[in-house]
């Protein structure tokens, strides 16, 4: 059995203070050139906030999809109904979340690998809502697909 390193950014939403420092540092550190700008629209982590209902959920940008979902589900949190898009990680054509403003280039969290750093959103999160974990996981050796 081979192993590989899996990186986890764990979210404890109860600890989120909704300050969006993670959005700022993410967009700044991934900018070209680095730290030349701040724009949450370019961030690969966005905090979903509903301040009237005590819902604060950091959402990390996930995979790109070129089609939107066919059906839409709803999610009930603390007695209030939200569209599932609110917490969805996809960069998808139905909304502008996780796509660069103007260019529309999809964004995806790379746990700061592309900038050779530990995840900065985690480092800058003083409320300890975000934590980072690296786990060695066993993976099955790849076998050529049967013809």
């Amino acid at each position: 059995m081979a192993t590989r390193k899996i990186k986890y950014i764990n979210i404890d939403a109860d600890k989120c203070s909704g300050c969006r420092l993670c959005e700022s540092i993410c967009s700044a550190s991934h900018a070209d050139p680095p730290y030349s700008l701040v724009n949450p629209g370019r961030s690969r982590i966005r905090v979903f906030r509903d301040e009237d209902n005590d819902v604060y959920i950091p959402v990390l940008a996930g995979p790109y999809t070129d089609v939107e979902c066919l059906g839409r589900n709803t999610v009930m949190v603390k007695g209030k109904e939200y569209g599932e898009c609110s917490f969805c990680r996809a960069s998808c054509p139905s909304r502008d979340l996780f796509r660069e403003p103007e260019t529309d280039i999809p964004l995806k969290c790379d746990t700061c690998e592309s900038i050779n750093s530990e995840p900065l959103c985690v480092k800058w999160c003083l409320s300890k809502c975000l934590t980072f974990e690296e786990v060695e996981e066993e993976v099955e050796e790849e076998t050529p697909a049967a013809a």
């Binding site: 203070s17 909704g18 300050c19 969006r20 420092l21 009237d52 005590d54 604060y56 409320s127």
Partner: peptide, 25 residues
């Protein structure tokens, strides 16, 4: 007290959110 809240880019979290049994936050 249900949460400590921060303003934009602030890690100080000076605002305290209280849950009231019958009237929201």
């Amino acid at each position: 007290r249900s949460r400590e809240i921060g303003c934009f880019n602030c890690a100080l979290r000076c605002k305290h959110e209280y849950r009231n049994p019958d009237s929201g936050y």
